[in-house]
């Protein structure tokens, strides 16, 4: 302890050690995540969806907007009167449903990513400020969020879209605003729990400023519940976007968005079941998969539930 000359340590060795520490954390995370079978299945389905969306032009058998004039409302291939080239049948104007679903995955994932990013970034910043500053700033922000939360979410989204004008982008902004308060409350609660902890005080004694304390010291320790909430909001966003699309306020035809497809198929529910069923199933499977992943993430990230 008294010798002050450090033994020569190679940089490479230190970095390898540092990397292995990071790796150990990831391995531990994966261990807890993989304990939850449902979550793994959800993850596989979600990855398949992502691949489908990315390679849509290669996978889809037809152009999603091309109308085959000779095949309106063709049933799926295995039904009587189905055609092998339209595996899941066609809709009322002769577009291939399978291709539209595959392209629709692009929109759904895009909606999820954009909405969650906006809501998450906004929610984190506002929540951090509220939880860190406390006092009147906190009260003001939280009352504002309470007002937003007091509206039925879809209704508020509808009103916002009505103000902004229909369209996919506006629908996404509206949904993000509706989802934001959940992130704000969650961040604030986590920040309030962390800000009094000794390591935060220690960082302050070491000279960390407000910004550093908020974003580098406190925020990384609040991320676990936020990640879980983000995945669950991802599916919520897809659902809300589909609902807005169904009501004619979201993506506009002929965009192959799943909710919009449902809306277009409304009048054929009794005559051609496949036009409604498949977009509905696509939404169901996607949302279910993401929710399962969210569940698994909660198991892996939330130390309170973790069996130590």
């Amino acid at each position: 302890m008294t010798n002050s000359s450090p033994a020569p340590v190679s940089t490479a060795k230190l970095e390898a050690e540092s990397r292995s520490a990071t790796k150990a954390q990831l391995i531990e995370f994966w261990y807890y995540f993989s304990q939850n079978k449902g979550a793994v299945i959800g993850l596989v389905v979600f990855m398949a969806l992502v691949i489908m969306a990315v390679f849509a032009p290669l996978i889809a058998p037809h152009d999603p907007t091309f109308q085959y004039r000779d095949s309106f409302l063709v049933p799926p291939a295995w039904e009587d009167g189905g055609k092998a080239t339209f595996l899941l049948g066609t809709d009322a104007v002769g577009r291939d449903i399978l291709s539209r679903l595959i392209y629709g995955a692009q929109f759904s994932l895009f909606i999820g990513v954009v909405v969650v990013s906006i809501a998450l970034v906004g929610g984190i910043v506002i929540g951090l400020v509220a939880g860190y500053m406390r006092g009147s700033v906190d009260t003001f922000i939280m009352r504002l969020m309470d007002i937003i939360l007091a509206f039925p979410s879809l209704l508020l989204a509808l009103v916002l879209v009505a103000i902004l004008g229909p369209g996919l982008m506006n629908a996404m902004i509206a949904i993000a605003i509706v989802l934001q308060p959940h992130f704000v409350r969650l961040t604030r609660a986590a920040v309030m729990a962390e800000r009094g902890r000794d390591y935060v005080v220690a960082a302050r004694v070491a000279g960390a400023g407000h910004m550093r304390l908020m974003f580098k010291t406190i925020l990384p320790n609040c991320l676990a519940p936020l990640i879980v909430q983000a995945t669950l909001s991802f599916s919520n966003a897809i659902l809300d976007a589909a609902a807005l699309g169904f009501l004619g306020m979201g993506a506009q035809p002929p965009t192959p968005e799943w909710g919009t497809m449902l809306a277009e198929a409304r009048e054929f529910i009794l005559r051609a079941w496949w036009v409604v069923t498949f977009p509905g199933l696509a939404i169901l499977v996607t949302v279910l998969a993401i929710n399962l992943v969210g569940d698994g993430l909660r198991d892996a990230l939330d130390p309170k539930l973790k069996r130590s």
């Binding site: 302890m1 002050s4 450090p6 033994a7 230190l14 050690e17 520490a21």
Partner: peptide, 18 residues
């Protein structure tokens, strides 16, 4: 930092750990 680790009786390998 490495110097200090040694001074308080820890190993340089501990530098990158959590």
């Amino acid at each position: 930092a490495l110097d200090m680790l040694q001074k308080v009786g820890l190993q340089p390998e501990h530098y990158g750990r959590y």
